[in-house]
Design a protein around this nucleic acid. Structure first.
Lengths: 204, 204, 204, 204
DNA sequence: AATGAATGAGTATTCATTCAT
DNA sequence: AATGAATGAATACTCATTCAT
């Protein structure tokens, strides 16, 4: 039984990983189910044993990738002490993930609303969760006096906006050898932190 | 003679507008050329008289939309006096455009790198142009002492990042009645401007 | 296992036979793949499981028909004792094949160089093979003293020229009830044999 | 008026010549009416002023080419004194025509019965005319005692069969530098003439 | 559970022909 | 008579999905 589960689980994962590879390389429409099956070294029909359709497989693949990202993010954030530290970790982890999963990033960043309502909704939802999670963190941080009181929603948007655009730069543009993205994100963080900094009187 | 041009130009434009409608509603892959032709009230073959392929039509449509956006943006920006004013106009115009062309916005925001190299490249290029144009403006503004000296590249990313994410909120999320995007963008601008504000000593 | 092969082989052959029927009736361009599939009682996609394209199917069909013709020809020729006997068998078998496969003959006789380089080349090659095979036979026959020494190439051309034109008469012209093609070919053979006959001194 | 006719006639001929060029190069199906119009330097619509359809244009083009061939053939044959001389002229003129109109020859030789009943019928008819004309000539020659009495139909088939196959060699095969077609046809003629030669006793 | 042979719905594109000018 | 912009019928081919084994 555990054997069956193992084999079964193994295959499911193998298919998801194969899907990641193929979908990332070719995009949803140009990727062929048969190709994914080959990559996973399973029969074409087997893919349909685990996923109801190509679209569902695509969705599951995205969820899997996103989960991986969130896991590593939470792990890092839990160790952050100051807000600046947290921001830096956020930028760091996100950029690394994007760099490693460049092709997948294309999909996550350039959320494809036209691929289908369902997929789009899930991605939007994930983004909202992230924004809300950031909002909560900002409330804590505000309470702790690390930043001045602002609309945490607006602040979240500024933070993730900068983050996503920088990641876009990392991923989409091939002249990435020249640019120091490390420093770029540092400067963006500086601007944002200053924008959120508590009133100057404290500096006196 | 002018008649011929008019008719001819008319048809090309009619097709582009029809394409905008259909592509926006259904996305590239689900849109059918025949449907676009019907919408434009021309024969299917006529589409191919003006555009070499479905893809070229798609690209031309995007360029047309983008041009419209840039035109209205430039017009507004030319009237802006302070940097804050400019930023507000930028957010204003962009949000309005996105609201009015919701479906097209889906495409512009969620730049589809997987649709094809060529289209992706053009979109990236447009984005880079916008970032650079903002960088230049920031240099002027810095020289005028309106903001402190920062990496204009980083600052541009922060600004457009916030802008795009807010537009995404406007477009993607249907609960937009509740949220006051006007105020949201105002708050984001406040954060950003503070982040870019000249040293506090001036405040003394 | 043999079942699987049988079924598989069956389908391929069924498609080829259907193709023969449809292509012969309508020619390459007017024949529709779907029609061939229907005739073979298989799905349209199945045709493409066995043949990469309409053109390849066409080529395979021709090769199949040609093979059938050659097989029956060789069988007959192996039994021929004199050269006259061989010539008669050649004319006999060829005319019979053409009569039975009238429509296919249209294609084989009227080799379509404009259908595509590849198909044309294969057909030319087959014809050359036949000419060469005849040349060799003529050399043997010459050695045996049955005919006088001539350019075997020229002789082959005369023989096959007459053969093809007679077959053309059989196939292309519908007033074939009136004409006695049996006798016509006999007379042609007589003329040719006389043209190749050894010097008259033997007649003394 | 004569001007109009001239221009008119000019255009018709220009179109036919352009058609010859394009059809020969690409074959019926791949040739485009627009291309022919361009080659003839007339508007696409103008083609339809002179020819009811692409197919009719094709037919007219073939008739025109065939007429040219027959004219030059008759001119040469009228000067021939002996039968051998006539045969040689026939082979000569035909081979030259085929060499000069290689691509057209592809169409004339490889009579395309599948292009359409009408075209096929005309071509068959032309061929029959040629065979009959040869038959008549053979009757004259027989009467003059140049050849022995044979089925003139059979003899015609032998003659044209050899002729067509040799022309096919000239046209279809690109290794035509090596082969001496002049000599090849000479040898074929020798064989045929011997096959038709009067009884040997006359030689005594 | 696993497979892959079979299927057919779905679509971009071409090009002969027309007809208003 | 001459034109070419406009048209839409016509068709090969792909690939997600199914199902018998």
């Amino acid at each position: 039984m555990s054997d069956i589960n193992k084999i079964s689980g193994d295959k499911r994962l193998r298919i998801i990983k194969a899907a990641t590879k193929i979908f990332s390389r070719k995009g949803f429409h140009k990727a062929k189910v048969e190709e994914i099956a080959e990559e996973a070294v399973v029969g074409k029909g087997t893919v349909y044993e685990y996923f109801a359709s190509k679209k569902e497989l695509f969705l599951e693949m995205i969820l899997y990738a996103h989960q991986q990202y969130q896991d590593s993010l939470e792990q890092e954030l839990s160790r952050a002490e100051t807000f600046r530290d947290g921001l830096q970790k956020l930028f760091q982890v996100t950029m690394n993930f994007m760099k490693e999963h460049k092709e997948m990033a294309l999909i996550l960043l350039a959320d494809h609303p036209l691929l289908g309502e369902d997929i789009h909704k899930v991605l939007c939802q994930k983004e909202q969760q992230q924004l809300e999670s950031m909002s909560k963190m900002l409330q804590d941080v505000t309470r702790r006096g690390e930043i001045r009181p602002v609309s945490t929603h607006a602040a979240s948007l500024v933070i993730f906006g900068a983050l996503y655009l920088i990641c876009g730069q990392v991923v989409f543009h091939e002249d990435n050898q020249e640019t120091d993205f490390q420093q770029l994100s540092q400067e963006a963080i500086n601007i944002i932190l200053r924008g959120l900094a508590p009133p100057v009187k404290e500096m006196l």
